[in-house]
Design a protein around this nucleic acid. Structure first.
Lengths: 156, 156
DNA sequence: TATTTTTGCCAAATAATCTTCCGAAACACT
DNA sequence: AGTGTTTCGGAAGATTATTTGGCAAAAATA
């Protein structure tokens, strides 16, 4: 299973990142190959795990998700047990879209989405603050998003 | 153009978020409708802008993107000109994956991805710090990501 | 309540696409 | 040059997408 990406592979990845539902026929045209080898390359990229999955991106405003925030979380101690306890709880909250372990002042940073301020407050009070190992929370409310690219730059 | 989502629409959105390349035939089975009305609903969701786009999600480690960070940015003054100047510059940097205007201590928060610490440092020094209206930067390096859901909870 | 209109659904037919197979060409390494 | 490996392209069958027409239930109108 080749983990070496040539120019064509990178082009495929770039195109599939920006249009995940392109047909194989059209993709093959854009990269200048016939459909068969194009599909073979895509399949290899999928099987090797380089392409993990495909997703539809929704308009958050139109589905009534008006409030997005980043939340910096500090735990009551940084031992393994506390971290695992925290992650276990966090994974059950579907409004928590992302959870990253970070360096710096806090221990974790979360991205959270909710319908409005009221439901956000309720969510934080009843679910997040409620986690025993959580010490402090600092919320950064997103006023507007200017860039949310789904196309990562591929080095090499 | 109906902006009202019934139970079936929400199910469709949920499925397409977690599997953006599902076939219409299979989608129709999972929601219990025949292919024709299923496709009609998906098309409506696309045309109304509720579904904005489809994207492949890549394995960042496997494409050599080893360093991800959140960067809190403070501008040299919060007037419209400075903000627009900042956004113009930011949009030209492909390593900046996200850019959000936020409340709180900083003015903006960025998500940045790079190959390694060296290229990250170079990027920050040569491109980000270099923007005239940028006052201060605080980087939070992501040690590991425990959740990165592409499925948003849909209220109502 | 009766009629019209609208909406949403299904089934079937056609067009487009995917997928596989195999031979040919390009490439790398002796 | 020769051998082995990889990559490509074309053709065929299988799958899927898309369109069409028509039916039935719900909503609107009178």
């Amino acid at each position: 299973m080749s983990l070496k990406l040539d120019k064509i592979d990178r082009k495929i990845l770039e195109i599939l990142q920006s249009d995940g539902r392109i047909t194989n026929a059209q993709l093959s045209k854009e990269i200048g190959l016939s459909p068969a080898p194009t599909l073979e390359r895509v399949k290899k990229l999928e099987q090797s795990g380089i392409i993990k999955s495909y997703h539809a991106k929704l308009d958050t405003a139109k589905i009534n998700l008006g409030v997005s925030t980043f939340v910096q979380v500090t735990l009551r101690g940084h031992n393994k047990e506390n971290i695992e306890e925290f992650l276990k709880e966090i994974n059950t909250i579907e409004e928590v879209i992302e959870c990253h372990h970070i360096t710096g002042s806090g221990d974790f940073i979360l991205k959270i989405m909710a319908k409005d301020i009221a439901s956000y407050q309720k969510l934080m009070l009843e679910k997040v603050s409620d986690i025993k190992v959580v010490d402090s929370l600092q919320s950064l409310v997103i006023l507007s998003t200017f860039k949310d690219s789904k196309v990562l730059p591929i080095p090499n």
